[in-house]
């Protein structure tokens, strides 16, 4: 399974390296969202600063949806997924490999986005390790749910409209917890952030486990 995971992850990252979809389309999209929120909230730093964590996470959520759709469309076009299954890839390995690759891409996006948000919303990035831990755990949870729904809707013609409707309500705990840890980190209240980290960890663990178990049966439908 782990060999399949690594192979799949390498393949997805190579596809990204060749096409640059995430870096040249999704990252600029996330930047646009952060700037638009700046316009919507007005230039007053007193209003911008408390909103920064929420804006950051909303931009990540929207980007995650695009990432998931991209990640699934790569497998669905030209019957690529059938090739993987014929090659004897373990479904759990496929899930974990795609998860790893997409988490990697999104973490890259989040690093850039956090710096940008800090600069234009006028906040100082403090409690570095808390931010890193929260971002990693939250991203794993987001991508796990996203991929689950992605494969669930893979064969459907309405996936572009249905995926956000299914995805956003389920990941609302990640948005709440992610925003809270960021607020705690920026205010240097590290202890309040720890409880939220646990919630993010539990959320990620639940949906990674569901993904490992159910990706096989769902791939058969796709």
């Amino acid at each position: 399974m782990f060999r399949d995971t690594l192979a799949l992850c390498r393949k997805d990252l190579r596809v990204e390296w060749m096409t640059r979809i995430t870096s040249l389309q999704v990252v600029p999209f996330a930047v646009v969202i952060v700037v638009l929120f700046g316009f919507a909230l007005g230039p007053d730093p007193k209003q911008l600063r408390p909103a920064a964590p929420g804006v950051f996470w909303l931009a990540v959520l929207f980007s995650c949806i695009l990432g998931v759709q991209r990640s699934m469309s790569v497998e669905m076009s030209d019957g690529a997924i059938d090739g993987l299954r014929l090659a004897g890839f373990d479904p759990a390995g496929i899930f974990l490999g795609k998860l790893l690759a997409l988490v990697g891409e999104l973490v890259g996006l989040e690093v850039l986005l956090s710096i940008l948000t800090a600069v234009i919303f006028g906040v100082t990035l403090a409690s570095f390790w808390l931010l890193v831990a929260a971002t990693l755990l939250a991203t794993v949870g987001l991508v796990a749910v996203g991929l689950l729904y992605g494969v669930l809707l893979a064969s459907s013609r309405v996936r572009e409209t249905l995926l956000p409707l299914l995805f956003f309500p389920v990941i609302s705990p990640v948005l709440i917890a992610g925003t809270k840890v960021w607020q705690a980190a920026l205010d240097r209240h590290v202890s309040t952030g720890i409880g939220w980290l646990e919630l993010l960890g539990v959320f990620g663990a639940i949906y990674v486990a569901i993904g490992i178990v159910s990706f096989g049966p769902l791939l058969e439908d796709a």
């Binding site: 749910v145 689950l148 709440i176 639940i206 569901i210 049966p217």
Partner: peptide, 29 residues
């Protein structure tokens, strides 16, 4: 979403599990 009844049933059942498990997490959050 129209599909073969068996495929649709499996898809819906897994979606139902995802939704139901989410409820306590949402509540605590």
């Amino acid at each position: 979403v129209p599909d073969d009844p068996k495929l649709r049933a499996r898809r819906s059942a897994i979606a139902a599990l995802i939704a139901f498990i989410d409820v306590p997490v949402v509540y605590f959050a």
